[in-house]
Structures are given as C-alpha cells and as structure tokens.
C-alpha cells in the first residue's frame, strides 16, 4: 500500500510536529485558565504521537505505534486525575485561574 511518505517525505511531518509542539508551549505560557493549559498539554502529546507514527511508518516497524498506545493510556490517566484535581480546586477557590493558587507562597 502506498503511503504519503513517498510523496512528501518524513521531514515534512517533523516540521508539522515541531510547529504543533511549539503551539502547545505557547498555550501553556499564554493562558491562565487551567483547563486551556490542559488542552495545550494534549496538543503537545499529540505532536509527539504524530512524530512517532510518522517514524513507525518510515521504518516500517510496529513498535512506534505500540508506544503511541501507551502514550494515549498515560494521557487518558493524566486527564482523569488532572480534571479531578481541577474540580477540587474549583470547589475550594471558586475559580481555576492559576494565579489565585498562592497558598504555598511564603
């Protein structure tokens, strides 16, 4: 079966993944809403997953895709626990603005 890599090469996927990862970093630094920061983390995880799949196809090895499964499992666990923490923070503080979380500040 033909794949896209014959037409555009694996390096185009590298550039796309790098740009997507930078956008995720930008979201983390720019926003104060914790939920949007979570979404930025998801964008970064997906950028790395896409690079793994591109290289798995490039080397014709199934291991890369297996790693993507594990990273998806970790992402699902991270989102479940993280959102539970956010709900708990929201109950105690009334907002999820990370600048309000200053209880540990001396």
């Amino acid at each position: 079966m033909e794949t896209i890599l014959k037409e555009i090469g694996v390096e185009t996927y590298l550039y796309l993944s790098a740009l997507l990862f930078s956008i995720g970093v930008f979201g983390i630094l720019l926003r104060r809403n914790a939920i949007v920061m979570f979404m930025s983390i998801e964008i970064m995880l997906n950028a790395v997953n896409m690079m793994l799949v591109a290289f798995s196809t490039y080397h014709q090895d199934a291991s890369g895709q297996v790693f993507v499964f594990f990273s998806m499992a970790v992402a699902a666990a991270e989102v479940a626990v993280g959102l539970a923490i956010l709900v708990s923070i929201f109950r105690n503080h009334g907002s999820v603005d990370i600048d309000n979380l200053k209880n540990l500040k001396g």
Binding site: M1, I4, Y13, E42, N46, N49, Q65, F69
Partner: peptide
C-alpha cells in the same frame, strides 16, 4: 490528526485516536 494517521496508513491507530481523544 486522525486524518494524518490515516494518510500514514495507521488505520487502527486513527480509530483509537478518535475514540480516546
């Protein structure tokens, strides 16, 4: 991104990605 996975011929991964994410 699932469309990208389909382009890379990783059909099962694309379906799992849509279901999970």
């Amino acid at each position: 991104i699932a469309g990208h996975y389909l382009l890379l011929n990783a059909q099962f991964l694309a379906i799992v990605h849509i279901i999970v994410y």
